[in-house]
Design a binder for these strands. Structure first.
Lengths: 340, 340
DNA sequence: TTGAAAGCGCTAACAC
DNA sequence: GTGTTAGCGCTTTCAA
């Protein structure tokens, strides 16, 4: 682990010059650059990040908060994390995994104050998410996967494009002749927070339903597949006109699908099933395989990280990936024409 | 962001004394301890981690390498990561997510040399895993989820107890009257590495098969569910005596299950299915739900991290969680008595 | 039982 | 275009 002093000596320049060659923050003559570069290569020099962080006041480390309580951790969270971690790495940053049981940001704040963390990425964002204020109040940069009620202010985020997703879903479903659709969401009574995505999707589905002449009725369930299964009877018996189910609740959706299988109800003959929140890797386990229009989690994680880092560095917002992602409709085996 | 100097001043002691109160590396009189503590509380003092790292030569940061190429990233990897991250946090460490496309450790080594990383946790360990040597050669501490061929040397790892897992599986299967069993593994021809778990499980299954009087025949497939599906015909037609399938290949297993569904083959009537590698969160998506005996990934991640950190700190190995984990048999809907 | 002080390896302001 | 130097906030040795 060569130090800057050794490089400077070998290159016959001052230590500062070595630093300036690295950062490019100063004009250095080509010959000197070459000499310094050669010395660094020969010594296998890497600047000490801890010294950089101490002297420069930034660690180039960000944290990704995993809310582990809410509903267990979903696979989609891993994909957010992978996208964000890869982006961070590409930009010379690092991403630490930060599991939180209770959505408390106490400890992250303390750690940021200790100089380890330059910023934080939040998931499962609520419309009015106090974590955002708490973090910003103490000067910690915040990036969101999701977004609060703030209407496109200065928030740093990547989120789903709920309107487009809802339109895509209902356009497709209406095109198959479905007129009466159940919309399956997560039960939030008694929950400490309502994730903004839920509210936004509900609104978007309502609007899109009107647009495409589809009657959308909301059903709620926990994320437990067994609870989803219990919804099949009410949907089919009480409201026989319903021929399709669109779900924002992946757990309930797979339960519902299992129940159709075990009760011998034809999917998609009697009932079409479309999931708006099931990661692809999960789909392979369902049978028949779910038609989905799911968020591109890896890309959203990438976008959130790049945006947060751009914010930290004061870089412009050109050349950044999109903020809003609709997700692609992937037609598989659970959707088909409405029955006559 | 109070500094140590401010604390020292407020407490009326030297800066060194503040440090010693924190680390406990020196005997400090009770009254002084109290004064320092009070000053720290009042100022909300947190030692600067970058300064600690620079002066102390350790960052208290470890990385978890996610091999993203091999087979996509599995959900089980998230659980390893969560367990490891939580353990790290509990011990005052932090865990950075490190996606790697190609199992190269070049970049991690460079980053460790830069002082950011004290150690590394590896997954998908091969019997002869060159990464381990490469890292150790440059003095980076290594922890494994899995293990190499080294017979219980000084390796720091948490791994499955393949023998117990195989015994549990075959004892259960034999108890149901199955005599001829297919063992489904991942095809490794052309793969750059063979994960040690595969070799070890094959051996363990062979031995356990003998013990319980079960004939175990190995089948291979990629992890693509479609490939798994294609295995159903050979298994049933060519070797009709087979009445159960045990799988170490979760992708192929769900494909097989889907194929039984679509071909109307009764599970577990005609064929019992037991997965040795499907995380619980995944099981809820299968129908019928898979019987599993899967590795306790969260706990294994926790164990690997705690062991690595104990190694870094030179702490003893008492009070550490187990190295070997068999996993619990969870009987669900895909296993039953062998047909007559 | 406590204090003083020499680093740790950088960044960046200042000087030439 | 390059060098000098004062920190950044700690750990730890040496001295008292």
């Amino acid at each position: 682990m060569a130090t800057r002093a050794e490089v400077a000596k070998l290159a016959g320049v001052s230590e500062a010059t070595v630093s300036y060659v690295i950062t490019g923050n100063r004009k250095i003559s080509i010959p000197v650059q070459k000499r310094v570069q050669k010395a660094m290569d020969k010594l296998g020099y890497r600047p000490n990040r801890m010294a950089q962080a101490l002297a420069g006041g930034k660690s180039r480390v960000i944290a990704l908060l995993f809310p582990t309580a809410a509903r267990g951790v979903a696979h989609v969270d891993l994909e957010y994390g992978l996208g964000a971690a890869q982006a961070a790495q590409d930009l010379g940053y690092h991403l630490v995994m930060w599991p939180t049981l209770d959505r408390s940001v106490q400890e992250v704040i303390a750690t940021a104050k200790s100089g380890l963390l330059d910023g934080v990425i939040l998931m499962e964002v609520a419309l009015h998410d106090e974590r955002v204020e708490q973090l910003k109040d103490v000067g910690i940069a915040v990036g969101l996967i999701g977004r609060t009620a703030t209407e496109f202010g200065d928030e740093v985020f990547a989120d789903r494009d709920f309107d487009t997703a809802a339109h895509t879903a209902l356009n497709y479903i209406a095109g198959l002749g479905h007129k009466e659709v159940a919309f399956l969401t997560e039960k939030t009574r008694g929950k400490p927070v309502v994730v903004a995505a839920l509210t936004r999707t509900k609104q978007a589905m309502k609007a899109a339903g009107k647009l495409y002449g589809v009657n959308v009725k909301n059903f709620e369930s926990t994320t437990d597949p067994d609870d989803g299964a219990k919804l099949l009877a009410p949907i089919l018996d009480e409201i026989p006109k319903i021929t399709a189910v669109i779900s924002l609740n992946p757990g309930a959706m797979v339960g519902l699908l299992q129940e159709t299988n075990s009760r011998g109800i034809s999917v998609p003959g009697r009932l079409s099933l479309l999931s708006m929140a099931t990661p692809e890797s999960f789909v392979s386990a369902t049978s028949p395989r779910l038609t989905t229009i799911s968020p591109p989690a890896y890309e959203m994680g990438d976008s959130a990280a790049r945006r947060l880092i751009a914010h930290l560095e004061g870089t412009g917002v050109e050349n950044l990936p999109p903020q809003l992602w609709a997700g692609e409709l992937v037609v598989r085996e659970t959707t088909g024409p409405a029955q006559a």
